[in-house]
């Protein structure tokens, strides 16, 4: 008479240990383990390996994960902002939001709600007529306000709204930012989702790609955070106090910080406050120092809307 022992596979042992086997199979594995030293040893080895792995894996969180308070508060604020923005915009029928899917989401909610309203067809025609009328009026008024604001467009958009972009920093030291391998603003690409969120906050839907640069208020070169509270959409059409001029100030401030002539907190405040006033203060000037390139500046000044406006103006 000959006994053949069929041992359990590693997969069966693991499935059994993880409670992933059906009851009948699990009990068969259990019975086998009681009688087989070989499989029981392998089972123990696997359990040890799991223990070792978990030990290494847990080390990560013990050393590097910051407390939850800040991130939780940020999440709550973002949810409320997102929630209120969606509610306000949903009524208007067009939505910009933090994510691509949210637009369809909000539109579908409006449609869904509208379909539940009785006598919808009767009202729809009246509403559509009113909406069209209002849209025409709105367009006309927008055109007027655009023309009216042309004269004072020099500072338009050069400063962010303080309530939306007060400036935010991460905790870094002077040694960190002055180290040669510290990532610069050019390397810190703003993720598309964050850019969308910034545009949404500023109520800009479907921006033309050539219309705005999403710029850092406090540059990451001086510890500025990559967050919506530190970013704002800066129009490209600003030809005097634009991003290039702000870069000059940032480079100057970083030089001062790294040479120990200025502390980092002051540099950050100078950027998050009125950066144009800071520029004037540090460079002792009322106008940007860098020479504008006349032809390009002229070209940038006359963007196509203004050209069209000039032709249509009486």
């Amino acid at each position: 008479m000959r006994f053949e022992i069929t041992h359990l596979s590693d997969e069966e042992l693991l499935l059994s240990a993880d409670g992933e086997l059906p009851a009948k199979q699990a009990s068969a594995v259990h019975v086998h383990l009681e009688t087989c030293w070989e499989c029981r040893t392998r089972f123990a080895e696997m359990q040890n390996a799991i223990g070792d792995f978990i030990h290494i894996y847990r080390e990560r969180s013990q050393v590097s994960i910051p407390p939850i308070d800040g991130p939780r508060a940020l999440l709550r604020a973002e949810i409320r902002q997102f929630s209120s923005a969606s509610t306000a915009h949903a009524g208007r029928g067009f939505v910009a939001s933090t994510t691509g899917g949210a637009r369809e989401w909000a539109v579908s909610r409006v449609v869904e709600k509208a379909l539940r309203v009785p006598h919808v067809v009767a009202f729809a025609t009246v509403l559509a007529t009113f909406a069209l009328l209002l849209f025409v009026v709105h367009l006309h008024r927008a055109q007027l306000s655009h023309h009216a604001s042309k004269g004072s467009s020099e500072l338009n958009g050069a400063m962010p709204q303080v309530s939306l972009t007060p400036g935010e920093t991460v905790s870094v030291t002077v040694q960190d930012v002055c180290a040669p391998d510290f990532p610069t603003e050019r390397q810190m690409l703003v993720p598309a989702s964050l850019r969308r969120r910034v545009f949404q906050q500023y109520g800009i839907s479907n921006p033309r790609p050539d219309a705005f640069e999403v710029d850092y208020l406090i540059t990451p070169d001086l510890g500025g955070a990559s967050s919506a509270r530190n970013l704002w959409p800066e129009p490209y059409h600003n030809t005097i106090w634009n991003a290039r001029v702000k870069d000059e100030l940032e480079v100057h401030l970083k030089d001062l910080v790294c040479s120990g002539k200025l502390d980092m907190a002051t540099a950050q405040r100078d950027l998050s406050g009125n950066w144009i006033a800071s520029y004037k203060k540090y460079f002792q000037t009322d106008a940007p120092l860098g020479k504008p390139r006349p032809f390009l500046a002229l070209l940038a000044r006359f963007n196509h809307r203004e050209l069209v406006g000039a032709f249509l103006a009486p």
Partner: peptide
């Protein structure tokens, strides 16, 4: 990095909010 992780986690939970609202 943890910084990237925090940003991703924020985005995930905003999407969750949207998912549940929907």
């Amino acid at each position: 990095s943890v910084h990237d992780g925090e940003e991703i986690v924020q985005e995930v939970f905003l999407l969750l909010f949207q998912h549940l609202c929907d």
